[in-house]
Design a protein around this nucleic acid. Structure first.
Length: 260
DNA sequence: ATTGTGGCCTGCCCGC
DNA sequence: TGCGGGCAGGCCACAA
C-alpha cells in the first residue's frame, strides 16, 4: 500500500466528500467486500447516508457515516483512491501505469454528482463495514518511545518483522521500515526485544522523523535508500554493497556495515 | 502466544 | 514476438 503516507494523502482527498450524501454504490466485485459485507448491505447502509469525517489509523481509511456505521477502506499493495476524478497519487511505485475501468473495485456516487472510487488492479485491498480497530497498534507517525518499547517487548522476532506487524505499530510498510532502520543504523534481523534503551529511543525518534520527512518529500518511495534498493545497490552513506535478503517475509535491503 | 510460511490476485519486466 | 519466471509499498489463515 500504500503505506501510512499514501493513505494519509487518500484521507486528505476523502475529506472532500465529508458532508456529502451517498446516492449510489458501485460494487462490481463481491470478493472486494470483506467481513461478510454484501452489495445489498452496502446499498442499505450507505444509500442516503452522509459521510461525516475522513480519518486514518495506520493504513486503514475510515469514513464514519451519520447513521453510525463506519466505512473502512484498505488499499492492499496497489490500491488508489480517486475522488471526483482526481487522484492524489497518480501512480504507485510498483503499480501499473495505466488506469483501466475494470480495476475500479468499489465506488460511491454522491447526490451532488461527485464520485469516490477505489482502484485496485491486484484486488488485495478491500471494503469493510465497522472494521475492528482492536488489532491495530499505536500510530507510527507519532509513536513514543514508551509505545515502541511495549511493541518490541521481549520479542525474539526480527526487528523488521515487528515494525511491519500492524498489531504492534500501525502504518509502516516495507519501504518505510527499510529506510527507517537504515537511518537508525539498526540491523533488521536483530531480535526486536534485544535493543538497548538508547537504541529504543533512537528508533522511536527515527520512525517519526522518517515518516515526517518522506511525507514532505511526497511518499514512502522518496527515501535516501530507495534508488539503491535493487540488486547491486550500494549504501548511500558508506558505499558498501547492500545486503539483500528476506526478513519478515519481505524483500529487505540493509547495509551490513552501517546497520548493527 | 508467538513466529514463520504460504497463499491470495494481477500486472509488468526481464531473459530466452 | 511469445512465453515463463520472478517480482511487487499488504494481509490473512494456518502450522509448528
Amino acid at each position: 500500500m500504500p503505506e501510512l503516507l499514501e493513505v494519509e494523502a487518500y484521507r486528505r482527498a476523502a475529506a472532500g466528500v465529508v458532508g456529502r450524501e451517498v446516492a449510489a454504490a458501485h460494487t462490481p466485485d463481491a470478493w472486494f467486500l470483506k467481513g461478510g459485507l454484501t452489495a445489498t448491505a452496502v446499498l442499505d447502509v450507505l444509500g442516503g447516508a452522509r459521510i461525516v469525517a475522513a480519518e486514518r489509523w495506520g493504513k486503514l481509511l475510515l469514513l464514519p457515516l451519520d447513521r453510525g456505521p463506519v466505512l473502512g477502506l484498505r488499499f492492499g499493495m496497489t490500491g488508489r483512491l480517486v475522488v471526483d476524478g482526481r487522484a492524489p497519487i497518480e501512480r504507485l511505485e510498483y503499480g501499473p501505469a495505466q488506469d483501466r475501468p475494470e480495476w475500479v473495485r468499489f465506488g460511491l456516487r454522491f447526490v451532488d454528482g461527485g464520485v469516490l472510487e477505489l482502484v485496485d488492479p491486484r484486488r488485495l485491498g478491500g471494503v469493510e463495514l465497522d472494521p475492528s480497530l482492536d488489532a491495530l497498534g499505536p500510530e507510527a507517525s507519532t509513536v513514543t518511545v514508551t509505545e515502541l518499547r511495549r511493541a518490541l517487548g521481549r520479542s525474539g522476532a526480527p526487528l523488521k518483522a515487528v515494525l511491519l506487524d500492524q498489531a504492534r505499530v500501525a502504518g509502516l510498510g516495507n519501504l518505510l521500515v527499510d529506510e527507517t532502520l537504515w537511518r537508525a543504523g539498526l540491523d533488521p534481523t536483530r531480535p526486536a526485544g534485544g535493543l538497548s534503551a538508547e537504541e529504543q529511543r533512537r528508533l522511536a525518534r527515527t520512525v517519526r522523523a522518517t515518516v515526517r520527512e518522506l511525507g514532505r518529500r511526497g511518499g514512502s518511495h522518496t527515501g535516501d535508500l530507495q534508488d539503491r534498493r535493487r540488486r547491486g545497490g550500494d549504501c548511500p552513506r558508506c558505499g558498501e554493497p547492500l545486503v539483500r535478503g528476506v526478513v519478515g517475509g519481505r524483500t529487505t535491503y540493509h547495509c551490513g556495515a552501517c546497520q548493527r
